[in-house]
Design a protein around this nucleic acid. Sequence first.
DNA 1: ACGCTGACTATTA
DNA 2: CTAATAGCCAGCG
Length: 128
Amino acid sequence: MPKKSASEKLKTLRPSGKREENFFELVFEVARQIPKGRVTSYGAIAACLGAKSSARMVGWAMNGAGRVKPAVPAHRVVNRNGLLTGKHHFSPPSSMAQQLKKEGVKVKDDQVVDFKKHFWDPAEELGF
DNA sequence: ACGCTGACTATTA
DNA sequence: CTAATAGCCAGCG
């Protein structure tokens, strides 16, 4: 385990200091378009924004998902394997899988069942 | 100012 | 099949 969570606080993300807010906004916007019962990946969103190589930034943007309004359904965003890698950022972490299950997405062992089937492609839905 | 870490992904061995 | 490596960009010590 790392010595310490890099941005365990991350409370000072950018509440007032606007910077790459545009990128964040785009990520949030796309994430909000995810229909209930569907999931997508960081890379898919990143690719849709033209930053396919910056999937990490999408994940980082999700850090502000709970602080913006309307709230962003970050629980519908998982990694390329359908694994709930971000569940540790929820409170409680199990709430992520719980919410997904509640929406009709089967989750087993922190992994989305039939991920490919539930996959929601932003580029496709947005008209790309 | 420099270096490390991180909610990722794709490629190579 | 799994493991390791590189690329990516922003925030924090």
